[in-house]
Design a protein around this nucleic acid. Structure first.
Lengths: 120, 120
DNA sequence: TGTTGCTATGAACCTAAGTTCATAGTTCAT
DNA sequence: ATGAACTATGAACTTAGGTTCATAGCAACA
């Protein structure tokens, strides 16, 4: 069990952001309790969880949709959960496609073949 | 030569966004002139350009950095341009790595092996 | 035992990326 | 030639994702 300062260091997320995510319902109760002084006490597993969250946020998912994903899992049937997650995977596929395109484009720029280069 | 409404339709970007990007210096002069009534007149090539911009914005680049990239090209030497663009490509590599991670994670969720699933 | 440091909360603040609004000139179809 | 549709501008508004601030209760070490 660790305190907020350590979670912050281990995840490289500011303390203010950890509290903010919690207000946004992005931190399930299983990962955080309160001690006698109302200090947040986290389970070590929060670190891996937050790293996953960071990764998903960094590639275009919003706090709200991740929060929904996490909290829906509480009461959805297996089939429903599966659908939600598979949808997310599809979204990542789209982003990956987009990225390959962007990279191709930047490489074309390097070779003087793209608009960024030839026109500007 | 096309007017803003057509650019909007061809790129699927709202007219307000096209004007906004222009204010942010994301639309080089070569792509847009003004007619006698001060209406914007775009060259058809703006469409491809804006699609590139959209792709890069959608994967985490900011308007400001793209604007810099575009406008720096006006006065940078070839070697300097190359460095800037190669840096962007590296950033995309990182995002791609991140994405593969996220996808792996979501697939683990599907199989009940990840935190999202087991803990929530 | 005091003072330096960690924790808590709510509210205010901030930035990026747009969007909406008020107002006004232009154009096109009838 | 007139009303509906298109264009322009600056300013105000919005939303997401945080950050900062004011205030206050514990902690931990000399």
């Amino acid at each position: 069990m660790i305190k907020i300062n350590e979670v912050s260091k281990l995840t490289d997320l500011p303390i203010s952001t950890l509290r903010f995510y919690e207000r946004k319902n992005l931190v399930p109760d299983v990962f955080v309790k309160r001690d006698a002084n109302n200090y947040r006490i986290y389970s070590e597993e929060i670190v891996e969880y937050l790293n996953d969250v960071k990764a998903l946020l960094s590639v275009g998912f919003s706090i709200e949709e991740l929060s929904l994903l996490v909290n829906q899992q509480l009461h959805l049937s297996y089939e429903e959960k599966k659908k939600v997650v598979e949808q997310k995977i599809k979204e990542i596929d789209d982003i990956q496609k987009q990225l390959r395109q962007s990279k191709k484009f930047l490489k074309a720029v390097l070779e003087g073949k793209a608009n960024f280069q030839t026109k500007c």
